[in-house]
Design a protein around this nucleic acid. Structure first.
Lengths: 299, 299
DNA sequence: GCAGTTCATCGAAGCGCTTAGACAATGGAG
DNA sequence: CTCCATTGTCTAAGCGCTTCGATGAACTGC
């Protein structure tokens, strides 16, 4: 493994010149830059990460804390994780993965040992204990999700409020006056995962504002769960003509199947809008109207 | 952020004594150790990661290369990723996540810059280009999966051969003589993901060895795909009384539903054994017989 | 024609740690 | 009572890089 001294020797310059040529932090003659670039290529030189961290006081590593609960939808989490890694790489950052088991202690550890320059926090809940830690750590952090107290925090999230409003408004435009919302599993609303209740509340508000009837039900990602949720919506809204889905992927397929069996034509008798799709919905039959909530942009 | 000099000052010793006390690489008096431990706690000291890498020539970081293809089952990948991270932490290693987009270049980069001490490779295919890279890199690597040429490689994988044999043998013991295998999607066998064909081949061999009839079909994770696969198995084996599943999670639910609709009683008329479960199968009705293939142990 | 800039480069300090080597003190073995 | 091994600690030399300050050289403006 060649080091900067080798490069300097081959290029016939001092190591500081190499460093400045590579970082661009001081002007270096074009000819010199070329010689250095050749030496770098010839030696297959890459700066030593440890030395860089030590001298430069930046690590070019980000910590990603991605909790995986029993009710987490793995494909959605995966989509976020991958999009964060991809985005980080575009800025020449690597990503260190921290798991649920080590959520707060891991953050403390990587921050205090100066292993990372910043933190990306996934699936932030209303009262997330990790938020307390990053406050005391004073390390640059971006949250994907919105905790209850956002003071001094940088939070990024899909705009669930706008999505709910959009879903309602489009359906109202089409003449619907009774719209149901099939939500995630019960536990998500209890645990404080904020995206689920945010969508629900915005959905209800938008319904009120539009002067139509709405109803909401949590939905288990099982056949009986979906049937139960659908029946509950129908019971509450006898004239139900549209359902908005803000739930996990599996529920989509099950619902479509249930409706097919019950001979409910989509969209003639029941309109369906999916507003939760970090994943592709192309393969559903009939194809669903979708409000895309792309993970990449948050990432 | 306190450093080792601070600890040395507070404890009233030299920094090398602190270093030796913490690493245990030289004997240190019990009383001194205690004073140092107190200073560490008082100052909340954690060694600087960069300095450690530079001086110690080890980073305590592992690269995890986890490709995500269109046909990858995210929950399974996630299970492996998490189990690798958890296992690494048990040895005080952190895990850097490398994605598909940067598979070979990323490996070169983190290795050449001495960012990591080793590599864990997920979802290794028969002719995986990443394998060529690690050969030239000469960096400690563990593969989860088995490429065609395993010379000088450390490969770990679930024992699909034994699983297939076990499935066949148990079913034969119960008197079955026509056993079908519902496999993964076609593309997995084509791309060279080795676990799928390995199970298939071992399944056929074990069937031959037991002197019974077997048949195999790839299966799309859609309702029509599952029906088609099932029908194909039945066509090939008119006396089909047992089906082994070596496929992704979604297919399980769909198959059970199809059978319920067709009034095929499980297990009275058709026995089902699931041999692909990195995930929980508890929630299926009826509960399936399972040959568990736990991600944690590979991780 | 000379002070003041800007450009290109170099030398050297220092980031925080590990580790080899040195050395004093202690304790047996002979 | 000496000799040697062991124990406990310290000093100092790096690890490979970044960055500050210094030094010429070439250029500008008056």
């Amino acid at each position: 493994m060649a080091n900067i001294t080798d490069v300097a020797r081959v290029a016939g310059v001092s190591i500081s010149t190499v460093s400045y040529a590579l970082s661009g932090k001081r002007p270096i003659a074009e000819a010199t830059k070329t010689r250095i670039a050749q030496a770098v290529k010839e030696l297959d030189y890459l700066p030593n990460a440890g030395a860089r961290m030590l001298a430069g006081a930046r690590t070019n590593i980000l910590a990603l804390t991605a909790p995986m609960h029993a009710d987490t939808h793995p494909p959605a989490l995966m989509a976020f994780v991958l999009s964060v890694v991809t985005a980080a790489r575009a800025y020449n950052y690597d990503v260190l993965l921290l798991t649920e088991g080590e959520a707060t202690s891991g953050l403390r550890r990587v921050a205090s040992s100066s292993l990372v320059d910043g933190i990306v926090m996934l699936d932030v809940t209303t009262d997330d204990e990790r938020v307390d830690v990053i406050r005391e750590l004073a390390m640059p952090t971006a949250l994907i999700g919105v905790p209850s107290d956002t003071a001094e925090l940088t939070c990024v999230d899909l705009n669930f409020e706008a999505a709910a409003e959009l879903a309602i408004n489009r359906l109202v435009e089409q003449g619907h006056t009774s719209i149901g919302l099939m939500g995630h599993a019960q536990i998500l609303y209890e645990r404080g995962s904020n995206y689920a209740p945010r969508f629900r509340d915005a959905f209800n508000e938008a319904g009120n504002a539009a002067g139509i009837s709405t109803a909401f039900h949590t939905t288990d990602a099982t056949r009986p769960g979906v049937e139960q949720s659908l029946d509950a919506l129908r019971a509450e809204l006898p004239n139900l003509t549209a359902v908005v889905l803000n739930c996990n992927e599996n529920i989509h397929g099950i619902l479509l199947e249930v409706l097919r069996e019950r001979d409910v034509a989509v969209p003639e008798q029941l309109s369906i809008v999916s507003a939760c799709s970090s994943f592709s919905t192309d393969h559903f039959l009939p194809p669903l109207d979708v409000i895309p909530l792309p993970a990449q942009e948050s990432g």
